[in-house]
């Protein structure tokens, strides 16, 4: 068997793949956080819970109505996004004039409510989500075996991330969005309905989290706790990347996933903590984050 640095290539590429998959989810989630933060100036603590709700939505659709993966990919983000819109309209919109930390506290409470309700109803053990048949099997790349679904997750999340980047950075709608980030009252004076834009942006960010949840459902177990620990890692990813740039969030997400995967090969004991250690190092060297600016 071939080896690199004393590690069998099979294991190395296997972990690299897992790292890329995790990275895909980090990227999707931190992208959603960055989009929401850009306009609302709050950190959406409920992001992990909304990711979990996306996965549960897909699972419920399949178990009770026989709705398959592809429809879930569309329906779950819309359903969870609508709950996001309701949350923004009824609660978050009352907090914009206050210290931004209240938004964090509110969404933390919302996350607890969702997580508690789902745990109460479905128990804390995970539910398996059947892999759609068209994804069974995989490709033999010669040096490793690449399951079809994993390849799909990486490609799909890259496509979603890059289209989000394109919409925000290169289209008219995106330019409104960026302008409203800089100076909402001026944009409003030009006749653009900023409050509605904020509502839809929150709904979109939440939808992104739910989309990540649907994509995660066949890989990880669908459980009420699946989002809680992930979101803290994503927070560290956001601190490392800084929230100034969309592309930065995507790059940091994938990059840190890969680094985490490699750590699992070379020094498994640190694989849980490596992202936090990197966060500490980045804070020491460049407090604003790799792509951020001090605001």
């Amino acid at each position: 068997m071939t080896e690199i640095f004393g590690v069998p290539t099979q294991a190395l590429f296997g972990q690299l793949l897992i790292g890329l998959i995790n990275g895909a989810f980090y990227a999707l989630l931190s992208l959603g956080l960055a989009v929401i933060f850009g306009l609302l100036n709050i950190i959406n603590f409920a992001h992990g819970a909304q990711y979990m709700m996306g996965a549960f939505c897909a699972w419920l659709l399949l178990e009770y109505w026989g709705v398959g993966y592809w429809w879930s990919l569309l329906l779950a983000p819309i359903a969870v996004g609508v709950t996001g819109v309701v949350i923004e309209r009824t609660m978050l919109s009352r907090l914009y004039k206050l210290d931004h930390l209240y938004g964090l506290l509110l969404t933390f409470g919302i996350a607890l409510i969702f997580q508690g309700l789902f745990t109460q109803h479905y128990g804390s053990s995970g539910q398996p989500y059947r892999l759609p048949t068209e994804f069974s099997g995989g490709y033999n790349l010669g040096f490793m075996f690449l399951p079809k679904y994993r390849a799909w997750v990486i490609v799909a999340s890259l496509v979603v991330c890059l289209s989000t980047w394109y919409v925000i950075e290169r289209t008219k709608l995106g330019s409104y969005l960026r302008a409203a980030t800089e100076n909402p009252s001026l944009v409003q004076a030009f006749g653009i309905n900023v409050p509605r834009m904020i509502t839809l942006t929150y709904g979109f960010g939440v939808g992104l989290a739910a989309l990540a949840g649907v994509m995660a459902a066949p890989i990880y177990q669908v459980s009420p706790q699946m989002g809680a620990n992930l979101i803290i890692v994503v927070f560290a990813v956001v601190v490392i990347g800084g929230m100034g740039s969309i592309l930065g969030a995507i790059l940091t997400g994938f990059g840190l996933g890969v680094i985490e995967g490699l750590t699992k090969v070379f020094y498994p004991e640190a694989s849980n903590t490596v992202i936090f250690v990197i966060m500490v190092l980045v804070l020491l060297v460049k407090p604003a984050g790799m792509f951020g600016r001090e605001r």
Partner: peptide, 19 residues
């Protein structure tokens, strides 16, 4: 788990109405 739900509820109420 209702404890978690109620805890979350108190958070929401405190932030919205009872800062």
């Amino acid at each position: 788990q209702w404890v978690t739900v109620i805890t979350g509820g108190i958070f929401v109420v405190c932030v919205l109405a009872f800062r």
